[in-house]
């Protein structure tokens, strides 16, 4: 009965959304904000990647909020998973020679790719969030191949905290210098060069480190809190 009700409800909702979709002018949206940003962003922000100009420039405050959401999720996961101490947990056996060697080889490669994606966020597709996930993946493979390996919670907490603080401090610096929180500083440089677009690359780096540390931290908690065979 309950399943039937859920089914009817879901069906109704889908029908409503489809009916809505039929009414909407999909494909030809009014480009009020969009076209204006396309026109002025290269001069105002100086990032070759317009998506990053929106993400860290025009809507940088939203990005700070999203960073905080991810942080809140990681912290909440820590609340749920962090009760059991690492010592009394029986860990999975190591993944074997092949996996371990593969993970060891991948580790530096993933770090380089991660930092590359972060550092070029204002030039090419990518940036802090994407690069941060790749950094975290470097630690994922290491832990999965050798579950006995232990990630230092203290180190993760420090990177996480300082990277987040750096993002906000850059914003506060702009508030003092320019009068606007998170306004781009340091001049724009030559568009397309690695050192350009003012403070945007630094914001990217802060995001990348924070996202990487958070995801690695969740992974570390999961591997510490793995339930022993009941």
């Amino acid at each position: 009965m309950r399943n039937l009700a859920s089914l009817v409800f879901a069906g109704g909702l889908v029908f409503l959304l489809l009916a809505l979709g039929a009414q909407l002018a999909l494909g030809t949206p009014p480009m009020r904000v969009g076209s204006e940003i396309l026109a002025v962003a290269p001069q105002e922000v100086g990032a070759a990647n317009i998506v990053t100009a929106v993400l860290l420039g025009y809507r940088g405050f939203d990005t700070l909020g999203e960073l905080a959401i991810l942080f809140a999720a990681a912290t909440a996961a820590g609340v749920v998973l962090g009760r059991r101490r690492a010592a009394d947990v029986r860990r999975d056996p190591p993944g074997g020679e092949v996996l371990r060697t593969g993970a060891d080889l991948l580790f530096p490669l993933l770090l380089v790719v991660g930092f590359y994606v972060i550092a070029h966020g204002h030039l090419t597709p990518g940036g802090g969030f994407q690069g941060g996930v790749i950094l975290a993946a470097a630690f994922f493979t290491a832990i999965l191949a050798q579950p006995a390996r232990h990630l230092s919670h203290a180190l993760i907490a420090w990177i996480e905290g300082l990277a987040g603080a750096a993002f906000i401090l850059i914003g506060l610096w702009a508030l003092l210098e320019d009068g606007h929180f998170l306004a781009p500083l340091l001049g724009q440089g030559v568009m397309g060069e690695l050192i350009s677009a003012g403070t945007l690359p630094f914001l990217s780096l802060a995001i990348g480190l924070k996202v990487g540390a958070e995801l690695a931290g969740i992974m570390a908690h999961l591997s510490d809190a793995e339930a022993p065979d009941a």
Partner: peptide
């Protein structure tokens, strides 16, 4: 007026730094 972001941003800053500080 620009300082009105501070009541939002300062708690965020403190939240980010809370766990390292507790160590």
């Amino acid at each position: 007026p620009a300082n009105l972001v501070l009541p939002v941003v300062l708690p965020l800053l403190a939240a980010f730094l809370m766990q390292p500080l507790a160590r």
